[in-house]
């Protein structure tokens, strides 16, 4: 059940962050979760620390294959609020929160060691749990390979579907053969950009792009 204290805190966050809140959920009935983009993480924690005297209990890091999820577990007079954010594996970098919560340093150093996520602006970046030379020479022990839900053999199908709305390109020999046979021009998404836009809109609407980990700029899967 939502207490008066919890209601006030969540309302402050909603008022001050507005659309920066990506999602609200609950880890348990009395444990609200706020998801924000990593650019808004410091602002969010600042509101909790400065307005509500929140204390950081710890930070959890989860490797989801394509992205890391960082969860900042904040305690406010017995109430737990969890602030989540995502870090793309290609970047593996996020701002350190030690500027507002100095005690976060040991946890950030440990996560850096184990997951190879760099905390930008941390005052003491030395390894904490691993030998000094580990970061340069060895893989972080808890970091998984970059992987998504699309298996290797499915990748050409998915990339082609996203790039042209069809799962095969048309080789030049086939184009020539079609001309010789006097077949009409193909009228699919392959040749109709406005139709391809609709396919992309559908992919965004159903979040297919996110689910498969599609990079719109590179027109490829991220892995």
């Amino acid at each position: 059940m939502e207490t008066i204290q919890e209601k006030e805190i969540l309302q402050t966050l909603r008022t001050q962050l507005g659309e920066a809140i990506i999602r609200e959920s609950r880890m348990a009935p009395d444990r609200p979760v706020i998801k924000v983009s990593k650019d808004k993480l410091i602002d969010t924690l600042k509101i909790l620390v400065e307005n509500h005297k929140a204390r950081l209990c710890t930070i959890s890091a989860v490797d989801n294959g394509l992205d890391f999820e960082l969860i900042y577990h904040m305690s406010i007079k017995g109430l737990m609020i969890h602030v989540k954010t995502s870090v793309r594996k290609e970047e593996s970098k996020i701002s350190s929160v030690t500027g507002i919560i100095p005690g976060a340093m040991t946890v950030e150093r440990e996560i850096w060691d184990l997951f190879q996520i760099e905390f930008d602006g941390i005052s003491d970046p030395r390894p904490l749990t691993l030998p000094k030379e580990w970061r340069e020479n060895k893989k972080a022990p808890l970091r998984k390979p970059m992987e998504g839900i699309v298996a290797e053999y499915q990748k050409p199908t998915v990339e082609s579907l996203m790039e042209q709305g069809q799962v095969f390109t048309m080789p030049s020999t086939v184009k020539m053969n079609r001309e010789k046979m006097q077949l009409p021009e193909v009228q699919t998404t392959m040749t109709r950009p406005e139709a391809l836009k609709e396919i992309h809109e559908v992919a965004r609407q159903v979040k297919f792009d996110k689910k498969v980990g599609y990079n719109w700029d590179k027109k490829k899967l991220r892995y």
Binding site: I149, Q154, T157, V167, A195, V202, F208, V212
Partner: peptide
Amino acid sequence: MEGVSCCPDPVVTERLQREMWLALAAR
């Protein structure tokens, strides 16, 4: 049919995400 996409295929796309597969087929 003008502007059609892949049906999409009943093996890969349907298994990956039924909503995407169905929305494209419906289109």
